[in-house]
Design a protein around this nucleic acid. Structure first.
Lengths: 169, 169
DNA sequence: TGCGACGCTTCACGGCGACGAAACAACGGC
DNA sequence: GCCGTTGTTTCGTCGCCGTGAAGCGTCGCA
């Protein structure tokens, strides 16, 4: 993941934005100025003037950390129906658990309604509307984890990271 | 928490030990040498010669991070039924003690009701509802320690740090 | 352009089972 | 005796799941 270089204190506003967006960043602090401190593991700073290799070293570490956090963002489903993503979790009831297995198996790809129906109800689907209802319920349960199910009309559904709606101030 | 200062590369062995012990540490790197890099959030380095304030700043951040991790550390249960977490403690009666052993063994993972029943009553469970009642009592005892037992419906229970529930409007 | 068919979303409802919690009684150590 | 622990009963609550129905946009077709 790309690491942003931030001039201090001239880039203060940009720094605030990068912090909100959880973007890894290295703050360049001129001689004589106090660095802005944070325990955020995606933030680091370096005193100027600095060796290019030192800057590269700190950028490298930040980038590796971001990659590690990124890995933690891919959802994991255990055999008990517990779905974990980036530290948080929800428990999925039996039907939604079975649906989630195939959705995760084809993460970011389309899964047909038939495939979902077979996964959710191996003994045959009870009603014509059941799948739709369970998709709605699954959507609501996934939202707090930052996951969303997209509809691909007349093709099926697709699981992906939720879209972060830009907050209008 | 105390942050260790490490001379590089002369303190290399000590550094390895500190890493194993998860002790926060700041590595002092003389001019011209390549710093040892790690994504460990409890490790940082600084190029010499450095301003005392800069060293203090980095030590401060490491210390704050260690404090944050300290708060989240896993609870410990001794053979007398004393449960300690972040300085505070409670004493657990026999049944709850045995339940707690398996809950801690699978910290943050689901423990089935059957497993809990076997742990709590090795000679067979007396009644149908006993486990539920003891879970309730355990919950009340754990709450002051910031621990909570989550229900995973029809699958079991799960022990974790208590949730600070963000109040919705 | 207007209309209906279709696909999808969402809600409200009822049945069922799992779980929560209070209240009470029995037991035992200090 | 007093208090903490334990088991039991009982009742209330909540989650899960299927069903019916209303709403809405898209597409095909006359």
């Amino acid at each position: 993941m790309k690491v942003e270089l931030v001039q201090w204190p001239s880039d203060e506003q940009r720094l605030a934005q990068l912090r909100r967006d959880a973007v890894p960043r290295l703050i360049l602090v001129p001689e004589g100025l106090v660095p802005p401190l944070s325990t955020d593991v995606l933030e680091d700073w370096i005193r100027l003037p600095a060796d290019d290799d030192d800057i590269r070293a700190r950028v490298r570490v930040l980038s590796d950390r971001a990659a590690g956090i990124e890995d933690a963002r891919v959802p994991e489903l255990d055999e008990n129906g517990l779905l974990r993503v980036s530290g948080r979790w929800v428990s999925l009831p039996p039907v939604e658990h079975r649906l989630m297995i195939v959705l995760l198996d084809r993460y970011r790809a389309v899964v047909s309604r038939e495939a979902l129906a077979r996964a959710g109800w191996p003994d045959g689907i009870p009603g014509r509307n059941v799948l739709d209802v369970h998709i709605v319920r699954l959507r609501r349960r996934l939202a707090p984890l930052g996951l969303s199910i997209q509809t691909v009309r007349s093709r099926g559904y697709l699981l992906e990271e939720g879209h972060v709606v830009p907050v209008a101030n």
